[in-house]
Nucleic acid binder design. Structure first.
Lengths: 146, 146
DNA sequence: TTCTTCTTTAGAATCATTCTAATCTATTGA
DNA sequence: TCAATAGATTAGAATGATTCTAAAGAAGAA
């Protein structure tokens, strides 16, 4: 029996539509398929192309344009967090809680680091009239060596 | 009299060629022009397009391809640090010392934060066989409000 | 149903960046 | 000083990620 903070897969699949409605989005076939792909297997970091490839393999086809649209809608709705780390592509993180990342420079892979494990002390105040919307810590990993 | 860690502009301009030679790069007209544009006015965060636009305004024309080539050579030589922060374009930072960044979400502007002002405690150890090559802290600024 | 509004989509367009192959130019050695 | 050569520059094509466009398709309300 898997005991984790992530809800069981079945449940996620069952209320994909409810989740979408709660976010103010119509539960279309495409969006339901994307919710299942994204949230059906624990925390993930996916690119648009990866997700597109996954949905192509399913019965429900989703166009690349829709993958992009949906990822942005989900991000706006707070279901995803967008990570623009290595240059080029964007990653979308299904973990929207407080955490940071290991970034493997060689492969571009991202791995979560629980927020509590990184203590950022004394962040300077931003110029007045502005507000800190978040602090991202990226631990770059040089995966060479051996 | 300006007292800073950055060398005076004149000096930078004068020994642009020497600086290039020290990095193992031939001091061509184009590279000298780029060294002056980059290091002649204190710490900067430039994109390739910005630098290209600047050099177009000078007497020494530099092609966009050369701007890209040179930025990467300089980065490899340790003269610049590449920042892939907001998605899309890369920024090149003339400050290669220990520091972090404010990132203005609205404009994409970057501002240095001295390394000492951010205390990152207890970074978790990376998987064995790998090594931490750096820790980047990005303080995202939501410049809305007023 | 039927209408209206929101969605999806293929393909074109865009933006940043890299590649290619031809043309130059620093440097070296005669 | 001059030619040879290794390295540098360049225009333009190619690539990769993403966004746009305009037309056709589905959801929700009446």
């Amino acid at each position: 029996m898997t005991m984790s903070t992530t809800p069981p897969i079945d449940e996620v699949a069952r209320d994909a539509a409810a989740r979408l409605r709660a976010a103010g989005l119509r539960p279309t076939r495409q969006r339901v398929a994307l919710v299942r792909a994204l949230f059906g297997q624990g925390d993930r970091h996916v690119t648009a192309e990866q997700l597109y490839a996954e949905t192509q393999a399913l019965d429900v086809g989703v166009s690349l344009a829709t993958v992009y649209n949906t990822l942005h809608q989900f991000t706006r709705a707070g279901l995803l967090r967008e990570l623009a780390i290595g240059s080029g592509r964007s990653y979308f993180d299904t973990n929207t809680g407080h955490h940071h990342h290991f970034f493997y420079e060689g492969t571009g892979q991202l791995v979560d680091v629980p927020g509590e494990l990184v203590q950022v002390a004394s962040v300077p105040l931003p110029p007045k009239g502005t507000e800190v919307s978040g602090v991202d810590v990226i631990i770059r990993i040089k995966d060479g060596g051996c």
